[in-house]
Each structure stands twice: as C-alpha cells, then as structure tokens.
Simulated assay, not measured.
Amino acid sequence: MSSSDIFTSEVIGTMVLVLLGGGVCAAVNLKRSKAFEAGWVAIAFGWGLAVLTGAYIAQPSGAHLNPAVTLALAIKGDTPWSDVPVYMGSELLGAMLGAVLVWVAYYGQFQATLREPDAAELKNANPGPVHGVFFTSPEVRKPLLNLLTEVVATFVLIFAILTQGLSKDVEGHVVGLGQLGALITALVVVGIGLSLGGPTGYAINPVRDLGPRIIHAVLPLPNKGGSDWSYAWIPVVGPLLGAAIAAGLYNVAWG
C-alpha cells in the first residue's frame, strides 16, 4: 500500500469519525440543539456509530483511525514501522479537519451557547461550556488515576481489535472477522463509553483528543476559555500505553 493511499484513507476516515463523534457531543451539549441534554447514552452510541462509519470509509488503509491502533498493529507485526508516521500524521490531520467541520455544522449553536449571559462567567470553568465538544476532561482531576483509566479503557479496545484475528473457520483456518470487525469494534467503543467513560470521557484515541484541542485553541469562539493543555498529555500517553500493553500481551499469548 502506498503512502498516498494511507494518507487519503486515514485523513478522510478520521475526519468523519471526529465529525460524527464531536457532532454528537455538540448536539447534546450546545443550547438550541434539538438533542440538547440527550445524555451520556446518546454520546456513547454516537461515538460508536462514528467509529463504524469512519472504519468503513477507511477500509483501503485498514481503518486504523487511531494512533493507538497503529502502534498496536506495528508491535504485533501487521503494520510496517516505516508506515507508522504516515498513519499517525494522517490521523491527526483528519481529526483536526473533523473538528473544524463540527464547528461549521453547529456554528449557530456555538454562538447561542457562548453568548448567553452566563457564558463570560463560565469562561474560566474547567471544563468550560464547549470543552466537551472538542476534547476530554476528567470528572475528578487526579492525573495518575486519569491516566490509568485511559490505559485500561484503551487496553480493552485494542485487545478486542487484535483478537478478532483469532477467529477460525470450521477447518481451523484463521479467517478473522472481515468487514464484520468494524461493527464489533464500534460496539466495543459503545461498551467502553458506557462502562469506562465516566471518569475521563474515554478518549481512547490520542488524535480524537489532540486534534480537536488544537482546533479549539485557534477557533474564534467567544468566551470559549482555555484549552486545558495541562491535561492534554493524559489522553495522548494513556491510550498509547494501553495499546502497547495490549499488543505486548497479545504477542506473549498468541504471537
């Protein structure tokens, strides 16, 4: 597979992933949205369907959409290490573009929310009124615990992805799950959101958090507040650690 094929597939797939995932967060959190206050279940299922859609779009490149997935597949031996920078750079760019599209699609709702009388008072809140649309924030700010939550949640995701390759046919040949794997992965994401998303908002994908955080920092949003850069390393390092642990365990058990 050429670098240009990887780039095109991962940029578009990750862009759609973040557009739909960030979009459900905007729909639930921004005033004047028809889905305002729809709740956590809507967000968990929205992100799962975002993964499903992005994965089908990005099938030509293997639909990584996530540096944690790319790292795990490189450790497992399925992805050449020379392709890792292309995958990760494409995923970051796609996530940034997706965040811009969320802003475009919900421009009126962003303005309605951030021009409310109390918006200026909430400007320095952490999390602020629109932070959740772009990036994750912990409910209880304890860096080590927050990091461990991201490690555990990502471990579940990556181990579920890697073990799909253990599926066998009636004759014992390894066949994997094929296109069904995208659906299984999407449901795993929903499950992680419902079960493990409460403490930190379950980034489980470094670029899903970092890309939109960068866009939040540069967008001309009134009363948007800071981008919480002191926390930004956790949803990047945690998923990568979780992926490395999952891939290492997989190699020990079945490699």
Rank of each mutant, 00 (worst) to 15 (best):
G108Q: 09
S227R: 03
A72S: 13
V130N: 10
V252N: 00
L65V: 08
Y87N: 01
P117A: 07
V237H: 00
V18F: 03
N66K: 05
I12K: 00
L19T: 07
E139D: 14
I57N: 06
A105V: 15
E171W: 13
T185D: 14
I234N: 01
G211N: 07
S227W: 04
F135M: 15
P129M: 14
G211C: 10
K76T: 09
A253N: 00
A35H: 07
F135D: 06
L92T: 01
G165H: 06
T113S: 09
P117L: 11
H64R: 09
W81N: 04
A246W: 00
G181A: 10
W229P: 03
S82Y: 05
L71W: 04
V218C: 02
V140R: 15
V156Q: 11
L166S: 10
Y87R: 04
Q59C: 11
G21I: 07
I234W: 01
E37A: 11
G48W: 07
L101C: 08
T53Q: 05
Y250K: 03
A55H: 11
E121Q: 14
I215A: 10
P206T: 09
A72N: 10
G108C: 08
A119C: 11
G248Y: 00
I245D: 00
I234H: 00
L144W: 14
G225I: 03
G248M: 01
A35L: 13
E10Q: 00
L20W: 02
V130T: 13
W103A: 10
V252Q: 00
V133H: 13
V41N: 07
W40K: 02
L49C: 12
E91H: 07
H131F: 14
L166W: 12
L221Q: 03
Q59S: 12
A125P: 05
A160I: 12
F110S: 07
A119H: 09
D209G: 11
I57D: 02
L180M: 14
N146A: 12
L147H: 04
I57G: 05
S61H: 13
A72Y: 04
P212G: 12
E150P: 05
M1F: 14
D118C: 06
A99P: 03
E171P: 09
I184A: 15
L92W: 08
P222H: 06
W47D: 04
P117R: 09
P222T: 06
W233S: 01
G62E: 07
V207W: 04
K76Q: 15
R213C: 07
A246P: 03
I192V: 15
A203R: 05
A232W: 00
G165M: 10
A38M: 06
V236E: 02
P80G: 13
T154W: 06
G226Q: 04
V130Q: 12
T79Q: 13
A42N: 03
G22E: 04
Y107D: 12
N126K: 14
Y231K: 05
T154Q: 05
T70A: 15
K31Y: 06
S4Y: 08
